[in-house]
Design a protein around this nucleic acid. Structure first.
Length: 302
DNA sequence: ACCCAGGCGGGCG
DNA sequence: CGCCCGCATGGG
């Protein structure tokens, strides 16, 4: 392991990024109130912490410092043009306060398989339990890596082959519940040759259609995979929170179908709708928008 | 006890 | 198509 190096950053918050229920949140180890995190990338364990405009990192494993820096830039969206993105999603008072409150939160870009597994596990589930299930699967099914004589050891992210070979009861022992059969079947489809690589070259619409052929992947999970696994920033995942928040903030509480909300989001935020979604989701969730006891919020207020 | 959680698949009209 | 239901599990 080499010493610590750093990347200069601006409009970046490691804390908000890792806390906001993205794939890394589900299996990375968040420390120091969100200002530090460690995670395994390939066969290398990476430690990251932020102090002001410096993002410090160190590593255990074979990857070079240069490749880790490149991975961090890619993964944390450090090269996203935040000035332009904020400009295009700062459409109303609600979005404005979301941006103000969580400035620096990035949409992360993760491995497609890691993203797919994370969001299949996320369905009809809560963040705390998703974390527990992901960590269990990593420790039980991920190949163990050891470095040096000090006995430093950690597990790689499990391969889909490993999960395809696992039994449903084994997966359920990690708390996966009724999702266990989806996980096994999706892993089996990938092992049988379903190409996640080919998705990369497809249009958003075609890619979504293709991903939804996987067991356990529906409209919402497909959009999550496209947004956080492929960097398709126009994807707009609609979960119970986003649906409730959009209805409450932009339609005065009126019920809207998922289809109507997709159309609304595209019209409103276009190619950066995915960024708008992440800020809507996190700000709305923290403020309990549309839930009992929330403070009043509306797009037109004030 | 009861309700909910970053939904999806399957069945029905 | 759209609608409705069941689904494992743990925490509030």
């Amino acid at each position: 392991m080499d010493g610590e190096k750093y990347i200069s950053v601006r409009d970046f918050s490691l804390k908000y990024t890792v806390e906001s229920a993205q794939p890394l949140t589900f299996y990375g180890d968040i420390e120091s109130g969100g200002n530090a995190v460690s995670f395994v990338s390939g066969s290398t364990k990476v430690f990251v912490r932020q102090k002001g405009r410096k993002l410090y990192f160190r590593r255990i494993g074979s990857a070079s410092a240069g490749s880790v820096e490149k991975e961090l830039r890619r993964r944390f969206g450090l090269d996203h043009d935040m000035r332009r993105i904020y400009e295009s999603i700062d459409t109303d008072p609600f979005m404005h306060s979301a941006i103000e409150k969580y400035r620096g939160m990035r949409v992360t870009l993760n491995d497609p398989w890691e993203t797919a597994l994370s969001f299949v596990v996320s369905q009809f589930n809560n963040v705390k339990r998703i974390r527990g299930i992901m960590k269990c699967m990593i420790s039980r099914f991920g190949e163990q890596v050891k470095y040096g004589t000090s006995g430093v050891a950690f597990n790689k992210f499990p391969s889909y082959q490993a999960l395809a070979e696992a039994s449903v009861p084994d997966l359920m022992r990690c708390g996966a519940g009724f999702r266990a059969k989806y996980i096994k079947e999706m892993a089996a489809e990938l092992s049988a040759g379903f190409s996640l690589r080919e998705i990369r070259g497809m249009s958003y619409e075609r890619a979504k259609e293709r991903l939804m052929e996987l067991k356990g992947v529906g409209d919402k999970v497909a959009d999550c995979i496209l947004l956080m696994g492929y960097g398709k920033l126009e994807a707009f995942p609609i979960d119970t929170w986003v649906k409730r928040i959009v209805e409450h903030v932009y339609f005065n509480g009126g019920k809207k179908s998922v289809k109507e909300i997709h159309a609304f989001a595209q019209e409103m935020w276009g190619k950066h709708a995915g960024y708008a979604q992440q800020y809507l989701f996190w700000h709305g969730r923290e403020a309990k928008v549309g839930k009992r006891g929330q403070a009043s919020v509306a797009a037109t207020e004030k």
